[in-house]
Amino acid sequence: MNIFRFLGDLSHLASIFILIHKIQTTRSCRGISFKTQAVYVAVFVTRYLDLFTTFVSVYNTSMKIFFIASSCYILYLMKVRFRPTNDPSIDTFRVEYLVGPCAVLALIFNYGYSVTEVLWSLSIFLESVAILPQLFMLQRTGEAETITTHYLAALGAYRALYIPNWIYRYFSEGYVDPISVTAGLVQTGLYLDFFYVYFTKVLQGQKFELPA
């Protein structure tokens, strides 16, 4: 564990708490893509199958359980508790265009031909593009509640912080995980436009609005 990875994990935790807080205080999941949230459940479930076979640390196990549980809880909030505030008509990104190619990539690039390894690989690729339905929705509506942008910023910062972690691990342990690194760079790249608007507008106290 190094400071970058720890801060990345904290940022990931923070993003989930911000999202739950947003939904509960506004009593609405307006502006949140259900498709993105559903993909996250798939990502966590497929990646953390090793929960039953491998023990790394109490930290590692607790975080895995938290990510699975909280992502399922968010789906519950969106589909049951605050269902009327969820508008599927603006959440139109075709998720099959993400899952299909990611499944093919996982079959080609993995660390071993076993069900768990291929699913692990799938989860890494899927995570890298999971935010697309959300960003697509943002682009369509052209604006976002400030709290939603804080959620997205924390979520984007999480994988971005893993990049210095991988550089650090390469030099300190000789550890390289090419699948995670490649996907992580793509994932962070997808946030660049968002980060630009977030830093130049939201953090200057303005509303998140995209130019027409």
Partner: peptide, 10 residues
């Protein structure tokens, strides 16, 4: 050393 069999990241 690669990530094979050593997945300690989240």
């Amino acid at each position: 050393e690669t990530a094979e069999g050593k997945k300690d990241e989240l």
